[in-house]
Design a binder for these strands. Structure first.
Lengths: 153, 153
DNA sequence: GGTTGACCTCGACCTAAGTCGAAGTTGTTT
DNA sequence: AAACAACTTCGACTTAGGTCGAGGTCAACC
C-alpha cells in the first residue's frame, strides 16, 4: 500500500521501537546504534535500526549490560546488513547466558532450602553464605571473605 | 576457650563478616544495622550483628534490594534477639522470590529457544520482544510499546 | 606519654542506564 | 512566511549501592 519511508526520524524510531528518544541518543553515544544526519543535523535512521533495537532491548531483558550488548553487536559484519543467521548466532549466546543464570539461581535456591529448616545463616557454617569460600574460621586473623560477587561472566 | 568479646569494633565486624567498613556505615545510615557508641563516639556492635549481615549479604545475592532487606528486617521483633525461626521465616520468603525469578528466566529462555531458529527478533512478530504487549502493529499511530520492564515481583 | 593504627564525619565521586530541562535550530504545514 | 512540532546539544539530575580522601579524634601498646 503505502511506500515504506527510506529513513526514519528519531521520533518515528522511538514510536515504532518503544525506545524513548532520549535512550536512542544515549545508545548512539554508547556506540550501540548509528544514524546519518540531514543537512540540518537531524538524525535519520535506516529501518534496520529497529531490529538492532529489538536485539538490544531483548538482550537487556535477558540481563545483559549495554556493554555486553555492545560487544555482541561488534561481532556483526560491518560490510553488510546482518542476516537472520547473524541474529540467530547472537541469540544463541543469550541462551548460554540464560542457562547459566538459571543454574546459578537454582543452586542458590537449593542451598537456601537446606538452610531454611535450621535458620542458620551463620557466617561460620552456613553453606549459603559461604558459597565460594570455605575458610570462614572464626577467631583472630581470619582472612576476609570475598565481597559478594554478582552472578555474571 | 577464650572469652568472646562483648562488643565488636567496626574493624572486627568488617573482618569477620567480610563486609567493608564503608559498607557497614552505609548500612547503618540506611537503617539495616545499628551500633552503640563508646564515650569517644566509636561504634561498637553486638555479636548478633554478624547474623544480620549474613542475612543482608545473602539476600542481596538472592537479588533483593537493600530496601527489600530493610523491610524484611523490619518484621523482626524489636524486643528480643531474633530466633532461628525468625530467620527461617525470612529465608522462606526468599525462596518464593527465588522461585519466581527462576521461573521468569525460564520462560524467557523458552521463548528465546523458539526464536533462535528463525533469527527473527522482529518488533512485529517476535514473541520474545512482545512479552506483554501484543499490539505492535506497524504503521502510523501505533501506540508506544511499554518500556522494557525488568523481571521482578 | 607518645606513637601508631583504628576510628570518626562529611562531602565528593563512581557505574549503569538513562531522564529532564533549557536554549537554540529544523522541518513541515497551512 | 509564520507558526509550531520535532529536533539539536549540553549539563545536571536520578537511583542503587556503595568507595575514597581529607582532616581530625580515639585507643592501645611500649
Amino acid at each position: 500500500m503505502s511506500k515504506l519511508p527510506e529513513m526514519l526520524t528519531i521520533g518515528q524510531v522511538a514510536e515504532r521501537s518503544g525506545v524513548p528518544h532520549t535512550a536512542l541518543r544515549f545508545y548512539e553515544e554508547r556506540g550501540l546504534i548509528a544514524s546519518e544526519r540531514t543537512t540540518g543535523n537531524q538524525r535519520r535512521y535506516p529501518r534496520h535500526v529497529l531490529r538492532r533495537l529489538a536485539f538490544i532491548r531483548t538482550a537487556q531483558r535477558v540481563g545483559l549490560s549495554l556493554e555486553d550488548v555492545h560487544d555482541a553487536l561488534a561481532t556483526l559484519p560491518d560490510n553488510r546488513t546482518p542476516t537472520k543467521s547473524d541474529w540467530s548466532r547472537l541469540s544463541a549466546n543469550w541462551q548460554v547466558e540464560l542457562d547459566a543464570r538459571i543454574d546459578a539461581l537454582r543452586r542458590l535456591r537449593d542451598r537456601l532450602t537446606s538452610c531454611i529448616g535450621c535458620g542458620c545463616l551463620s557466617l561460620r557454617s552456613c553453606s549459603l553464605h559461604n558459597l565460594d569460600d570455605e575458610q570462614a574460621v572464626d577467631g583472630p586473623g581470619a582472612p576476609k571473605l570475598k565481597p559478594a560477587v554478582e552472578g555474571g561472566t
